[in-house]
């Protein structure tokens, strides 16, 4: 396993996550092996690699959604702005309001558009309609869905197209003012036009949020990410500036993957 310390961000104060020696097991199977990586703030970091390499597993660690999987065990630490998020004292619910998630298949609730975006807020006890309306509008605007949705806020979200639903899910996550947005292959279920919309959106969003995106599409990673991390069979093989990883990869495995020899 390669020593990745050389690839850590030059300025450690700008990291939002610091992962150190992370092992993740699903029962007896080890999905991640001694992963050490820093995620810089306000940048787009892409995780790439073939199926089953562990990239989604790592993503799910950041908001502790892995806790929901039976038999999942963690060794090592993940620090968010200095605090270990796997510490016993950690309020998982609060963590999830700081670290939002967008899933591969859009999963809006069978409720109105308004209620979808307001859901997270209501779960945190915010009931004032003035505040809710303001936040819903801001979030939909940031997710580039406001113009299309503003006259139909009470229509059922399931009636939106796939791309619109995914933007709704982004708006829903943004509504909680998270610091980080995790995206697990957010465009793999969408058509090319919708995909392009989301990619533009990600470009905008990174000014305000840190984005970690898992993607199967190398071209997508090359297009939108600042940093790229390549995983293979549970190992973090290489991580660095996207342009370097794609044009002058240091590891032969990385080179093979990028040139399409496997995956």
């Amino acid at each position: 396993m390669q020593d990745t310390t050389a690839f850590l961000a030059a300025d450690p104060a700008g990291n939002i996550f610091e992962v150190a020696d992370l092992d993740v097991y699903y029962d007896k199977f080890q999905a991640l092996k001694k992963v050490t990586i820093d995620i810089p703030a306000n940048e787009v970091t892409a995780f790439i690699g073939p199926s089953g390499c562990g990239k989604s597993t790592l993503l799910r660690c950041f908001n502790r959604m892995n806790d929901l999987i039976e038999g999942c065990r963690i060794d090592g630490t993940i620090r968010m702005e200095g605090t270990d998020i796997y510490d016993r004292q950690t309020d998982v619910v609060k963590l999830r309001t700081e670290v939002g998630m967008v899933f591969q298949a859009p999963n809006p609730f069978p409720m109105s558009i308004f209620d979808n975006v307001a859901y997270g807020l209501r779960c945190q006890g915010i009931r004032d309609m003035k505040i809710l309306r303001r936040v819903v509008e801001e979030s939909l605007k940031k997710a580039a869905l406001w113009e299309e949705a503003k006259d139909h806020l009470h229509r059922n979200a399931l009636k939106l197209s796939g791309g619109q639903q995914q933007r709704l899910c982004i708006a829903r996550a943004i509504a909680l003012e998270p610091k980080v947005i995790l995206m697990d292959e957010p465009t793999s279920a969408l058509d090319p036009i919708a995909t392009a919309h989301i990619e533009d959106l990600i470009e905008d969003l990174k000014k305000q949020y840190t984005i970690i995106i898992v993607t199967h599409s190398m071209s997508q990673a090359a297009r939108i990410s600042d940093k790229t991390a390549f995983f293979l069979l549970g190992d973090l093989v290489e991580v660095g500036e996207t342009s370097e990883v794609f044009h002058v990869p240091r590891d032969t495995r990385t080179e093979d993957y990028i040139s399409g020899k496997f995956g």
């Binding site: 309020d91 619910v93 609060k94 309001t97 807020l121 779960c123 945190q124 006890g125 915010i126 004032d128 505040i131 936040v135 909680l176 003012e177 610091k179």
Partner: peptide, 16 residues
């Protein structure tokens, strides 16, 4: 950084 008025008392109640 957060502008949302999330009351800790609500969060405590929610947990209980």
């Amino acid at each position: 950084m957060k502008t949302l008025p999330i009351r800790t008392s609500y969060l405590r109640r929610k947990k209980i």
